[in-house]
Simulated scan of single mutants.
Amino acid sequence: MVKILYSLCLLLPLGSRAQQLAADSIAPDPPALRRVSSSTSQEGECQEVLQCDSLKGVVRVYYASGRLKSYTPFISQQPTRRWGVATSWYESGQLQSREDFINGQPHSLLVYYPNGTLKRQTTYANNQEMLGYCYGPAGQPLPYTPYEQPPLYPGGEVMLKSDLAHQLRLSYMQRELIAASPTAQYVEVYFEVAKDGSVRSPVVSALYPALVTALGGSVRASELLSTQLPVISAALVQAFQQLPRRFLPGQRDGEVAAFACRMSVDLLATGRHMR
C-alpha cells in the first residue's frame, strides 16, 4: 500500500490576518544541530537536513533568494516522519501555513493568502482529512475542498506492484537470505513523487537488524549481510527509479505539488528470480 506522509499544522487563534513571525519564534532550533545533507533544486531552492541526535532533526528549505521557505521538524531518522510544528512562508516573509502533527500523523492545518488573510482551516482524525473551512481572499466563506489529493499510479496499486516485480531482480542467494527472517521480507520504501510525476530519492528502511537476529550473528552471516544487503537495497532503489510509468501528480491546496510517500514492499513477492 502506498501511503502519503502528510504534513500537519497547529491551530492559531482565528483572525483575518496572520501575523508575521520569526522562524525561531515558531520552531526554535534544537541544540547542537549538525548538517546531514544539503541539496539544491533546478529552481535554485536549497534544502538542508539537520539533526540534533540520532532521532530528532529538522528540514529547512530556502528560496533561491536565500529567504527561509519552510521549517519542518522530524523524528525517527526519517525526515518524512514529522513531529511538531511545521511552518512555511511566502518569499515575501508572510506566513503561508502552520501545520501540527504527532508521530507522523496530521493533527491540524492553517493556510493563509499572501496578504495574510486566512485561506483554510483543516483538522484530521485517524490520519484522514475532516471537513473544515475555506475562505476567499476577502474573507468570504467558500465551499470546502480537500487540501491534498495524493499522486496516483496509472493502473493503481496492482499495476505499481506489477511494474516493481518486473524491474526488481534478486539472486537465489539474496532470496534465501531474505527468507531467513519473515520480518526482513517486508521493507518500507520512502520516496518523493515530484511535480512531474517522477519518483525521486527512494530510500529503503534497514534490513540488517532482523536478519542478524534470524541468522544468529555468526561470522558467515555477517559476511553475507555486509556484502548482500547493500546490493539488495540498491536493486530496490533502482527498481523504483526505473518504473516505466510516471505517477499522476498530486495536488495540494489546488496546485500541483511534490509528495513524500511510503510504500510497504514484500521483497519475496516482488523480486523476480535472477538466473
Rank of each mutant, 00 (worst) to 15 (best):
Ser201Tyr: 13
Gly197Glu: 08
Ala184Tyr: 04
Ala214Ile: 10
Val199Ile: 15
Ala234Phe: 06
Tyr186His: 13
Gln241Ile: 02
Gly216Ala: 07
Ala184Met: 05
Gly250Phe: 10
Arg200Gly: 00
Ser233Glu: 14
Ala210Phe: 12
Leu236Arg: 06
Gln251Lys: 14
Tyr190Trp: 13
Gly197Pro: 10
Ala194Gly: 07
Arg200Ile: 01
Leu248Lys: 12
Leu225Glu: 00
Glu188Cys: 01
Gln242Met: 01
Leu215Tyr: 05
Ser201Gly: 01
Leu248Cys: 06
Tyr186Asp: 02
Leu236Glu: 01
Gly216Trp: 11
Gly217Asp: 14
Ala234Thr: 08
Val237Gly: 03
Phe247Val: 03
Gln241Thr: 09
Ala221Phe: 06
Ser222Thr: 14
Ser218Thr: 15
Val189Tyr: 04
Val199Pro: 07
Leu215Asn: 00
Ser198Lys: 13
Arg200Met: 06
Pro230Arg: 11
Val231Met: 04
Leu248Tyr: 11
Ser233Phe: 00
Gly197Phe: 09
Leu207Arg: 13
Ser205Met: 04
Val187Ser: 03
Asp196Arg: 08
Leu224Trp: 03
Pro230Trp: 05
Ala210Lys: 10
Leu248His: 13
Val204Ala: 02
Tyr190Glu: 12
Gln251Ser: 07
Ser201Gln: 14
Gly217Gln: 11
Ala184Thr: 05
Tyr190Gly: 05
Val231Gly: 00
Ser218Met: 07
Phe240Ala: 06
Gly250Asn: 06
Ala210Ser: 15
Gln241Trp: 01
Ser226Asp: 04
Gln238Pro: 01
Gln238Ser: 11
Lys195Ile: 13
Val204Thr: 08
Phe191Ser: 01
Gly197Cys: 06
Arg246Gln: 13
Val219His: 06
Pro202Ile: 10
Ser205Ile: 04
Leu224Tyr: 03
Ala214His: 09
Thr183Trp: 10
Pro230Phe: 09
Pro182Leu: 02
Leu248Gly: 00
Leu243Ile: 09
Glu192Gly: 01
Val231Arg: 09
Gly216His: 08
Pro244Tyr: 07
Ala234Cys: 02
Gln241Phe: 01
Gln238Gly: 02
Pro202Asp: 09
Gln251Tyr: 13
Tyr208Leu: 13
Ala234Gly: 04
Glu188Ala: 10
Ser233Tyr: 01
Leu248Gln: 15
Asp196Phe: 12
Tyr186Leu: 11
Pro202Glu: 03
Tyr208Ser: 07
Phe191Tyr: 15
Phe240Val: 04
Pro209Leu: 12
Ser205Thr: 13
Leu225Tyr: 03
Gln228Pro: 01
Leu224His: 03
Gly250Tyr: 12
Thr213Ile: 12
Pro249Met: 07
Gly250Trp: 11
